[in-house]
């Protein structure tokens, strides 16, 4: 039997907790009015699919990303880059990897056809992890997972302490030599929130990379994820990566 005192105690706890939950839910459902209407953060959850079998290593994504986001040219830094893998015959664990200028100028032929090796390109970018190591180490809250699933940098608030650069298991961050704060792929947040695709996807000629909204049931990303064998980079790190690769070879690190 519940005594009256217990009942009063429990129900007041419930009331206090549900008030807190309601306040939290308000934020989740965007109780704060947004400056630009029409885009509701809570309705989106962004991810990217990268189809290695389609990548031709043209470098369009690298160039487009640099122009779109003003990424430093000298010294060479990247928000996205392309790696070339050369897996010698009979030695699948030890690939040779190169990425001349991140693929900005394409990949001059270096290997001979018919030598029994396996060769392919792997585009890389921020994996926009749902449990980002970089976000966890930021001492001031200058990098964060946005409500729509994009890992962003608050450049006006970043100290430039470089913790996140070290914490990222994928090497996706760099210190911008002009601003001395951290910079990284933003999934072209200024484009995807306006109904456009990212600069890299816009210029990819083969649809090797496609941005997708996991909260939109009509998005072709669902079909792609269902019909392909998908993997993420370094799954053992449990970062909740949202860069989904098709045809990811085990030699890729």
């Amino acid at each position: 039997m519940t005594t009256r005192r217990e009942f009063v105690g429990k129900s007041s706890t419930f009331l206090v907790l549900s008030a807190a939950a309601a306040a939290a839910l308000d934020n989740v459902l965007e109780g704060t009015p947004e400056k630009a209407p029409g885009y509701k953060k809570a309705d989106h959850w962004w991810a990217m699919i990268i189809d290695i079998e389609k990548c031709i290593g043209c470098g369009n994504c690298v160039r487009a990303c640099k122009t779109e986001n003003g990424v430093s040219m000298e010294p060479y830094y990247f928000r996205t880059w392309v790696e070339r893998y050369h897996v010698p015959a009979g030695n699948p664990e030890h690939p040779q990897v190169d990425s001349p200028n991140g693929g900005y100028d394409g990949f001059p032929e270096k290997y001979k056809p018919g030598d029994g090796s396996k060769n392919f390109f792997v585009p890389k970018l921020c994996n926009h992890c749902a449990h980002s190591p970089c976000v966890q180490v930021c001492p001031v809250g200058a990098t964060f997972e946005s409500p729509d699933g994009v890992v962003l940098v608050d450049k006006s608030y970043c100290l430039g302490c470089r913790y996140c650069v070290q914490a990222c298991p994928y090497g996706c961050r760099y210190i911008d030599p002009k601003t001395h704060v951290v910079d990284k792929c933003s999934f072209c947040y200024h484009r995807i929130t306006k109904g456009l695709t990212t600069a890299c996807c816009e210029t990819c000629p083969t649809e090797a990379r496609q941005i997708g909204d996991l909260k939109n049931p009509a998005d072709p990303i669902h079909e792609f994820l269902r019909t392909h064998k998908i993997n993420v980079l370094k799954p053992q790190m449990a970062t909740g990566s949202k860069a989904y690769y098709n045809g990811l070879d085990g030699s890729v690190r």
Binding site: A36, K41, D154, Y189, T197, A199, E202
Partner: peptide, 23 residues
Amino acid sequence: VYGHYRAGALEDNRAFPLVHAGR
């Protein structure tokens, strides 16, 4: 407001100008 960061940073990130118009 949304988490351990400045809510305004989302708008800052949105405010970049477009360089590619899109097909």
